[in-house]
Amino acid sequence: MALPDLSDFDAVVYDLDGTLVNLRVDWAAAAQDAALVLQDAGVEADSMDLWRMLDVADEAGVRDELERELSAHERQGAWTSDRLPLADHLTADGVPSGVCSLNAEDACRVALDVHDLTHHVDALVGRDTVATQKPAPEPLLETLGRMDVDPGAAVFIGDSARDKKTAERADIAFRYVDGGPSGV
């Protein structure tokens, strides 16, 4: 794996899943459990993906219940996650470092703890930390704000087109972890 050149930046924000670690989440089971939460609220969710279910859960007033269900799957996957090569860069980058993830904050904390990365992270923002989620710019900007870093001095490293779009919307430099997008 070729690591991205980060020498021009004073701070780095990393995506988590697919960038620093691979969470071992059974996403099909997570989607089934999320659909059950929506069905209990009278919403038919069979044709929705998880991200649409989260939006609909807001509308149906069951976001907290759906988040608890999804977060439980993510935490379980965090306990058995695999550390990826870029995690070694995080431990040695020598600059303020943050994590901005589409996963639940508590699952991110578990994965960081499991792989002994927590003390290398100055700020963490998960899907449930702020009111919006990637690709909205607010989670990334919040991460940098917690690090007290100017966005122009930072780079966001991720593995997906969604991560790239987040960086573009926040007007922050972006690098793919390993060559290119794995989805939006």
Rank of each mutant, 00 (worst) to 15 (best):
residue 19 T to I: 01
residue 20 L to W: 04
residue 21 V to D: 00
residue 21 V to L: 03
residue 21 V to F: 09
residue 22 N to M: 14
residue 23 L to H: 05
residue 24 R to S: 15
residue 25 V to I: 13
residue 25 V to D: 02
residue 25 V to F: 11
residue 25 V to K: 03
residue 25 V to W: 11
residue 26 D to Q: 04
residue 26 D to E: 07
residue 27 W to R: 05
residue 27 W to F: 13
residue 27 W to D: 04
residue 27 W to T: 02
residue 28 A to W: 09
residue 28 A to Q: 13
residue 28 A to K: 10
residue 29 A to D: 10
residue 29 A to L: 09
residue 30 A to C: 14
residue 30 A to L: 14
residue 30 A to I: 15
residue 31 A to T: 12
residue 32 Q to C: 08
residue 32 Q to P: 04
residue 33 D to P: 01
residue 34 A to M: 11
residue 34 A to Y: 01
residue 35 A to F: 02
residue 35 A to N: 11
residue 36 L to W: 10
residue 36 L to K: 12
residue 36 L to C: 12
residue 37 V to P: 00
residue 39 Q to I: 05
residue 40 D to P: 11
residue 41 A to W: 02
residue 41 A to E: 03
residue 41 A to V: 00
residue 42 G to S: 10
residue 43 V to N: 04
residue 43 V to K: 07
residue 44 E to M: 07
residue 44 E to S: 10
residue 44 E to T: 10
residue 45 A to R: 08
residue 45 A to D: 04
residue 47 S to Q: 11
residue 47 S to H: 14
residue 48 M to A: 06
residue 48 M to T: 12
residue 48 M to P: 14
residue 49 D to T: 02
residue 51 W to Q: 12
residue 51 W to F: 14
residue 52 R to Y: 03
residue 53 M to L: 05
residue 53 M to I: 09
residue 53 M to N: 06
residue 54 L to G: 12
residue 56 V to Y: 00
residue 56 V to S: 02
residue 56 V to G: 01
residue 57 A to D: 06
residue 57 A to Y: 01
residue 59 E to A: 11
residue 59 E to I: 07
residue 59 E to Y: 05
residue 61 G to C: 07
residue 61 G to W: 07
residue 61 G to T: 04
residue 62 V to N: 01
residue 62 V to S: 02
residue 63 R to K: 13
residue 63 R to I: 03
residue 64 D to L: 07
residue 64 D to I: 05
residue 65 E to T: 10
residue 66 L to M: 06
residue 66 L to K: 03
residue 67 E to I: 12
residue 68 R to A: 14
residue 69 E to T: 14
residue 70 L to D: 04
residue 70 L to S: 07
residue 70 L to R: 06
residue 70 L to G: 04
residue 70 L to P: 07
residue 70 L to F: 08
residue 72 A to C: 02
residue 73 H to N: 07
residue 74 E to Q: 13
residue 74 E to V: 10
residue 75 R to V: 15
residue 75 R to H: 09
residue 76 Q to G: 11
residue 77 G to D: 04
residue 78 A to P: 12
residue 80 T to S: 07
residue 80 T to C: 01
residue 81 S to D: 06
residue 82 D to W: 02
residue 83 R to S: 06
residue 83 R to A: 08
residue 83 R to D: 01
residue 83 R to N: 00
residue 84 L to I: 07
residue 84 L to G: 06
residue 85 P to N: 05
residue 86 L to R: 01
residue 86 L to G: 04
residue 87 A to I: 09
residue 88 D to A: 14
residue 88 D to R: 13
residue 89 H to A: 15
residue 89 H to Y: 13
residue 90 L to R: 03
residue 90 L to W: 09
residue 90 L to M: 09
residue 90 L to F: 10
residue 91 T to H: 12
residue 93 D to M: 12
residue 94 G to H: 10
residue 95 V to K: 10
residue 95 V to Q: 05
residue 96 P to W: 05
residue 97 S to W: 02
residue 97 S to K: 04
residue 97 S to D: 02
residue 98 G to M: 02
residue 99 V to R: 02
residue 100 C to Q: 00
residue 100 C to E: 00
residue 102 L to C: 10
residue 102 L to G: 12
residue 102 L to A: 11
residue 102 L to H: 13
residue 102 L to P: 03
residue 103 N to R: 12
residue 103 N to W: 06
residue 103 N to H: 13
residue 104 A to N: 06
residue 104 A to E: 08
